[in-house]
């Protein structure tokens, strides 16, 4: 954290104008209701935070930018709860994204990112899901969605790439039990109607070793989108006992022409060597952006197969989000 603060100060020194120039700050609040029929549990998650974006510049142009997102998050009867919390009713300050991206190097050199950022892997690398019900399950598949570390990235004429080495401490800027994450993605430019990307991951988080290769794509036709991610790999949860894992996600989405209303349906299949049969999930969601500030969203997740030792997942979530 000290290193991060020092780097922000160093960025600020040659900046042209004062700190408020090219600074975006929004207050971001949300209330989420979760109704889990499988466990007969109703829970709530409240989050209130600051979302900031600052471009640092000199007379020659931009030097880089900073993203900082700090949220006070309160759980209410949330079971199971994330490892970031201590109890089902805990509250904590959570850092989502907090990174600097240095962009002023020569054309042939990559940009350098340092801080807490989303792992460059799969669909999540080009579609932001922070604070939304929409999810591409980075946390579940890779062990974490965000991590502290260093990354190299660049947008070239026809492709863009990002490669990172992070510490595997998730919300903590440190290595825990020799944890690390080495991941990367190369793909076609993210503003095209057809985007394809290839990703890799080699990681040790929470004493679980993971290796993954993935292909992801996005195809947009008028107001329809067809997205997918297929990942192959193996996990070692019990020291030198690798077990294969396959994961695929298909999404069909539709937005209204004014982009206020969005509907999506996801079909997810996870195949683990340790399980006798594959797990199949369906997610259906709808979001309505009333104006630039207020968004309502609703999603439902259902498990299609019958698990051996638990109830079928059956979760309905509702979220009200306000950005000021």
């Amino acid at each position: 954290m000290r290193l991060f603060t020092t780097i922000i100060m160093l960025f600020s020194v040659p900046s042209y104008g004062d700190f408020s120039d090219n600074l975006r700050v929004s207050l971001d609040g949300s209330a989420r209701l979760n109704v889990n029929s499988a466990t007969s549990n109703t829970s709530r998650i409240y989050a209130l935070g600051l979302d900031t974006h600052k471009v640092f510049s000199s007379v020659n142009g931009d030097i880089g930018y900073m993203v900082g997102q700090l949220y006070l998050t309160k759980l209410s009867n949330q079971t199971p709860f994330s490892s970031l919390f201590d109890s089902p009713d805990d509250k904590q300050f959570i850092i989502r994204e907090a990174h600097l991206n240095y962009t002023a190097g020569p054309k042939w050199l990559p940009n350098v990112r340092v801080g807490h950022f989303t792992l460059p892997f799969g669909l999540e690398a080009s579609i932001d899901t922070n604070g939304r019900l929409l999810d591409y399950y980075h946390g579940k598949n890779l062990g974490t969605k965000l991590d502290w570390g260093l990354g190299l990235n660049k947008v070239l004429t026809n492709v863009e790439y990002e490669i990172s080495y992070t510490l595997g401490g998730k919300n903590e800027p440190k290595t825990i039990d020799s944890s690390y994450v080495f991941s990367g993605r190369i793909g076609s430019l993210s503003h095209y109607d057809f985007i394809i990307g290839f990703s890799f991951l080699d990681a040790k988080i929470d004493n679980i070793q993971r290796k993954r290769l993935a292909i992801d794509w996005q195809y947009y036709w008028q107001t329809w989108g067809f997205l997918g991610e297929i990942a192959f790999g193996k996990d070692d949860k019990f020291q030198n006992k690798w077990q294969e894992e396959r994961y695929s996600l298909l999404e069909l989405n539709k937005t209204s022409i004014n982009e206020q209303l969005k509907f999506y349906g996801q079909y997810i299949v996870t195949d683990r060597e340790s399980d006798k049969k594959s797990q199949q999930l369906i997610n259906i969601g709808i979001s309505y952006q009333i104006d630039a500030k207020l968004e309502l969203s609703l999603s439902s997740r259902k498990q299609l197969d019958t698990p051996e030792s638990a109830n079928k997942q059956n979760l309905v979530r509702f979220q009200l989000r306000y950005r000021y």
Partner: peptide
């Protein structure tokens, strides 16, 4: 937070989704 309320900013998407059109 009180300072932010004094501003008149709003942007529907989180700022981490902002990307410069470099290419």
């Amino acid at each position: 937070i009180l300072f932010v309320f004094s501003l008149q900013n709003s942007y529907a998407d989180a700022y981490c989704s902002l990307r410069d059109p470099v290419a």
